[in-house]
Amino acid sequence: MAENSSLSHATATDRPVPYSTGDSNITDTTIAEMRALAARYPVGRSALLPMLHLVQSVEGRVTPEGIEACAEVLGLTGAEVSAVATFYTMYKRRPVGDYHVGVCTNTLCAVMGGDLIFERLKQHLDVGNDETTEDGKITLEHLECNAACDYAPVMMVNWEFFDDMTPESATQLVDDLREGTEVKSPRGATICTWREAERVLAGFPDGRADEGPTGGKATLAGLRLARERNWTAPSGRQGGGDGAAAQTTVSPEAAAGPRPSDQPGKESGTGSPATPDSRKED
């Protein structure tokens, strides 16, 4: 494939990646965390995917040392672990930047503008698909459907949603990330680094579940309309048999109790001191 590397469409995948850089960050702590993950499952091998996420959080990619560590903990061969690691798109053989920026280019997002956004970002960042900017900040990748089609065109930063994007908001977003400006997902938390995100995916929560709203405008579109027009599901079973159940059966009125956000159009759920949806809500 060497002759391909001079072609303009060449991507990172055409360039060799060092098997090992010899500076692995895997420590006894990592191994202990891997063992803890394996102990969560009835059969330890089930923890392999979480363990590979953990490797990425420590190493910034799936390294040979990370593969060997997984193999040792689970009693597998390195080849068996490699076979798994190479199957899944989220596992990266090349170092990923601080921010993994994804642009959905599956059909619906592509048609709604994702293709143009991706082209703009490639130019703006001067990278190809699956490549990282020279400052090591941003890795750009086009994505398959990320289950947010009602917010198309969609982007993801370290697997947090960025909704209803345009070429302008996309370039602003990556500029903010590169400059170190604090960036919040409109339906998630303040953006952490890719490695920190990978640690959560491995199964070590970061305590930030309460940031962000319940959902965005599209999530609540049908519910708001139903509230506006007083549409409800049929009322359910009243009374519930014995005493314990009486208190458990909630009348529509009781259920409607503290519901300050019933007024259509009013955003709810941002709660906390976090700012309301910073980006796209209108």
Partner: peptide, 18 residues
Amino acid sequence: MLTPVLSDNWDQIRSWQL
């Protein structure tokens, strides 16, 4: 016309909490 059941609590404050 619409029958919110699964989505009925989505406009509650911090609906994701217990």
